[in-house]
Computed example of a mutant assay.
Amino acid sequence: MNDKIKVAHLSIASNAALTLGKLAIGITMNSVSVISEAIHSGLDLIAALIAFFSVRESAKPADERHHYGHGKFENVAGITEAILILGAAVIIIHNAYPKLFGRTEIHSLDMGAAVMGISAVVNFLVSRKLFNVGRRTDSPALEADAWHLLTDVYTSLGVLAGIVAIKITGLTIIDPLIAIGVSLLIFNAAIRLIRNSMQSILDARLPEADERVIKEVLNKYSPEFVEFHKLRTRKAGSQRYVDLHLVVPGHMLINKAHNICDQIEEEISDRLSGIHVLIHAEPCALNCSDCRQTAAGKSNSVSCEILDKNKLLGGKPGNK
């Protein structure tokens, strides 16, 4: 959590400096594309503040009101950030559109090029830091903030290219065209952020790679049980949740079944960070030879056709 707070502070500081710098240069130049970049950075600053407060809130433990913790605060933050940058895109288009039909004087092109170049470099470095920490801690809020800054890198480079083109050609219409292009990139980033955050809000299943890890662990312990079913997964912020039913031989002692569940839970937790596993053990209702051998203390090898079929992970439950 200290790493998440530190990198959130870094994002706030860099965005504040870049917003003020771009706004001052944009007003001096009378450039709508540079001012649009200042607006974009201003929204990134607000997004960085939201990310900071959300990671701090999501770190709080479960309480009487939030039994499953506060992880979804980060998902709400991601949606809020996306809505903010959608608003920025609308403002940029509103300001740029009238300038498509009238020539405007643009000053201090060299100064504008310098601030755009500095902005691209700073945002690239900060976004990489945010991505590294966000992915390591599985933080949707930090990853959303990183995407904002990476988008800012692309748009800053676009504006820089526009300034160079204006200096070479003298065509000032390039300025509003670049601004509108910036807004389209912002729209794309916002829609992606909303889609990713909504999946967690609506309890979408974990990614296929995560579920593959869970099934690999279950397969490793498959000689100890009959089969599993009702595997369900979801995510809240950086926290993952898994629950499933584990069918064990009918005469297996309760403490042995409990130990198997503990081993499975522990290994899944070792391989996937921030995961909460809940396993419901239930007895196999079929009085097959495998269950009788287990009760007699013999080997737990499968010896009937029904169990051979049910040993396939995710197959039909043995007690149905």
Rank of each mutant, 00 (worst) to 15 (best):
residue 154 Y to H: 12
residue 225 F to K: 01
residue 288 C to I: 09
residue 201 I to W: 11
residue 211 E to W: 04
residue 261 C to P: 02
residue 188 N to H: 14
residue 189 A to F: 03
residue 198 M to S: 11
residue 186 I to N: 00
residue 213 V to K: 14
residue 229 H to Y: 13
residue 151 T to D: 02
residue 152 D to Y: 07
residue 164 V to W: 14
residue 234 R to I: 06
residue 282 E to A: 04
residue 157 L to T: 00
residue 180 I to L: 06
residue 183 S to N: 03
residue 200 S to Q: 12
residue 206 L to K: 06
residue 220 K to W: 06
residue 208 E to N: 08
residue 269 S to R: 10
residue 259 N to A: 15
residue 268 I to G: 01
residue 224 E to G: 08
residue 234 R to V: 04
residue 270 D to W: 09
residue 283 P to F: 10
residue 172 T to L: 07
residue 223 P to H: 10
residue 231 L to V: 04
residue 287 N to D: 15
residue 170 G to T: 03
residue 151 T to E: 05
residue 172 T to Q: 14
residue 170 G to W: 09
residue 258 H to F: 11
residue 153 V to G: 01
residue 156 S to D: 00
residue 210 D to F: 14
residue 184 L to E: 02
residue 152 D to K: 10
residue 246 L to S: 05
residue 279 I to H: 07
residue 205 R to M: 15
residue 290 D to E: 13
residue 176 P to W: 03
residue 279 I to Y: 05
residue 155 T to Q: 03
residue 161 A to N: 08
residue 208 E to H: 13
residue 170 G to S: 13
residue 179 A to P: 02
residue 273 S to W: 01
residue 268 I to D: 04
residue 209 A to F: 10
residue 234 R to H: 14
residue 262 D to G: 08
residue 267 E to P: 03
residue 221 Y to Q: 06
residue 291 C to A: 15
residue 236 A to E: 08
residue 258 H to S: 07
residue 206 L to E: 10
residue 276 H to Q: 11
residue 241 Y to G: 00
residue 162 G to V: 04
residue 173 I to N: 06
residue 181 G to S: 10
residue 187 F to S: 02
residue 230 K to P: 00
residue 208 E to A: 15
residue 185 L to S: 02
residue 245 H to K: 12
residue 211 E to K: 08
residue 270 D to T: 01
residue 290 D to N: 13
residue 174 I to F: 11
residue 219 N to P: 00
residue 217 V to H: 07
residue 200 S to Y: 10
residue 162 G to D: 11
residue 231 L to N: 06
residue 180 I to Y: 04
residue 229 H to W: 10
residue 259 N to G: 09
residue 252 M to W: 05
residue 216 E to I: 08
residue 290 D to Y: 13
residue 169 T to A: 14
residue 261 C to A: 14
residue 255 N to F: 13
residue 243 D to I: 00
residue 207 P to K: 13
residue 248 V to P: 04
residue 188 N to F: 14
residue 160 L to P: 00
residue 289 S to H: 15
residue 269 S to P: 01
residue 221 Y to R: 03
